[in-house]
Each structure stands twice: as C-alpha cells, then as structure tokens.
Nucleic acid binder design. Sequence first.
DNA 1: TTAAACTTTCAATAAATATTGAAAGTTTAA
DNA 2: TTAAACTTTCAATATTTATTGAAAGTTTAA
Lengths: 168, 168
Amino acid sequence: MKFPDAKKQFIKTWGTLGSEWGINRSMAQVHALLLIAPKPLTTEDVMEELSISRGNANMNLRDLINWTLVSKELIAGDRKEYFVAEKDIWEIARRIAKERKRREIEPVLKALIQLQEFEGTKSNLEHQAFIDTVGKLGKFVGKMDKSVEVMLKADESWFFGTLLKLLK
Amino acid sequence: MKFPDAKKQFIKTWGTLGSEWGINRSMAQVHALLLIAPKPLTTEDVMEELSISRGNANMNLRDLINWTLVSKELIAGDRKEYFVAEKDIWEIARRIAKERKRREIEPVLKALIQLQEFEGTKSNLEHQAFIDTVGKLGKFVGKMDKSVEVMLKADESWFFGTLLKLLK
DNA sequence: TTAAACTTTCAATAAATATTGAAAGTTTAA
DNA sequence: TTAAACTTTCAATATTTATTGAAAGTTTAA
C-alpha cells in the first residue's frame, strides 16, 4: 500500500470510529490528519487535504481545541495560525476521558441522584421498580465516575500494567 | 416530584446519554422505559408511553434484542409479545461493552494492524510520523481491547473493588 | 490610518438519520 | 381453511445535524 492510500485509510478509519462514538465525522478526520502530520498545519492545509470548506475546517479545529486535543502554534514571521495535535496517545485518552466525564457522566449522575429523592408508595409496584433501578444505576454511574478519576490520576504503565495484571 | 414526572425525567436523561454515545435516542428511551417497568410491556405499551409509532417501537425493540439488553417474553394465553429488559446493571454494562468491542474496537484494531504493514521511506518525515502514530495507536487500542476482555471476565465487586481500593 | 491577510460567524443548504403509517407478512384459534 | 390478531417492512416524510461560502470581524505591516 502506497502512502497516500494508507493516509486516506487511516483518516477514514478514525472518522468512522468518531461517528460511532457520537463525535462529528469531520472533527475526527481533522484530528486524524493532525495526528499523522509531522509538522503544524494551517486551516488551508486541512481544507485541502480533507476537501472541506473553510468554515467547516475552522469550526472543527476550534472544537478540537476545546477538547484540548489540538493547540494553536505560532510560527515566527508568519501571520497564519498553525495547528498541532497532542501526539501522546495516553494523554489523548486522558483528555477525552476528562471531557466526557465532565460533559456526560457528571450531568447523568447529578440527574440520577436527584431522582433518588423520589419516595413513592411502598405498595406501588411501579414506584418500587423505579426506586430500585434508579438507585442501582446511580451507584453504578457513581463508580464509573470514580474509576475515570482513578484513570486520570494514574499513569499509563500503572493503568495497563499493574492494574490489568492484578485483575487477571 | 410526583411519579409521572420522575419517570419522564428518567427517560429523558437516559435518552440524552444515549444520543451522546451514538445511540438512537428512541432506542435509549425504550430501554429506559423497560428498565423501570415492574412487568413485561407490549409494543403497544411502548408506543403509548413514549408517543412513538408502531414501526418505530418495533424496530427499537428489535435493536435492543440484538444488543441483548432486552428479551421477548411469552405470557400464557396471550398472543401478544411482551418485552423485558435485563435489570442487573453490571450485566447491562458487560453486554454493552461486549457489543461495542465487537462492533467498534475490533474493526479499528484490525485496520490499524493492517496499516502497520506500510513500510515507507526512512528519510521521509511524513512516512515516519505516520508509522509512529499508527504504531502507538495500534498498541493502545490493543490494550483497550484486552482491558475490555478482562472486564468481561471479571465480576463487578472484583472490578470496582480492586480498582477503587487502589486509588486510596 | 489603511488595506491586505487572515479568522470567525451564521443564514442558507445539503446530507444524514429517525420516524411514520399503511401494506405485506405471519401466526393462531376456531 | 379463513379471518382476526399480531408483527414486520419499507417508501415517504420529517427531523436533526453537518457543511458551505460569503460577509463581517480582527489583526498586522507599512
């Protein structure tokens, strides 16, 4: 396989994964492109490589910066903005985990805890099933949240090495 | 908060989480409804409770069955099909993990391994950056895959117990 | 200042995805 | 058998989400 095809294939694969995980396909593709770029790219580079519009490239780059997966880089003597992706895979995983925890797990946890205030009637089957499920789900999501915290504090070799060895 | 509101709130919360994770909002809502149902529901029950069409209810129930999160239940002397959700939260998590591993992680891993066949030119910066990133990503996704395998074999108290104890 | 170089915004449009509902298909009781 | 009871399918439609591109906004060099 020649380089241009390998590159296309990689971008496509990452884009597919992104969309399966609720992430905009273009955003995942811009990320893929930057992940394999040996040097900072401009908005124009991204537009050209992925055949997307300026607005699209700009918005997705901005989103990637919000996710802290990409940062702007200034190059002396050039007015253009350049972009680079974080290349350390473990660091990427941590940043994604951190954001998803904040954006998704925490609000759900909060909602579930709030729903635990519902008291209901002891003799009412529907009420009891609700209380039971919401209680168990709340506990579970709480543990998930704590687990992500552990992962955020850990370093990669501890996480994959020590932990997984202990769990076997 | 009264029961009907708590119920609505729960269904809404679960639906939102679903759509953030690339799952059809209706499918997540049908799941939520079944999770808190004290007894099996029919397609009609689902249609009515969620104000969705017969076709929609049917398709989402079928999808949930494919995910092994819901099963059909026969009630003697009744021609209708009834549906129940798995209620054990750890079991739900395992089944989701199992399916996502199979549908998403494994194909990406396969693609990344295949891309590692690309050899490239030593003096070519682009080639070297590509090889480096794809190699590291492949290793990482491989570890993720293994971790999910561990989780699938573990039981809940072992998994969260060990993990969370190590935090302290 | 000014104007060129560059970035951002956003209303219009396109594309993707979900939903409907009626028709076709299947099963069962009589 | 048949027809009622029930489930599934799928083309049409609606809804949501992503993309475009030109205009507005910002920054910088001269």
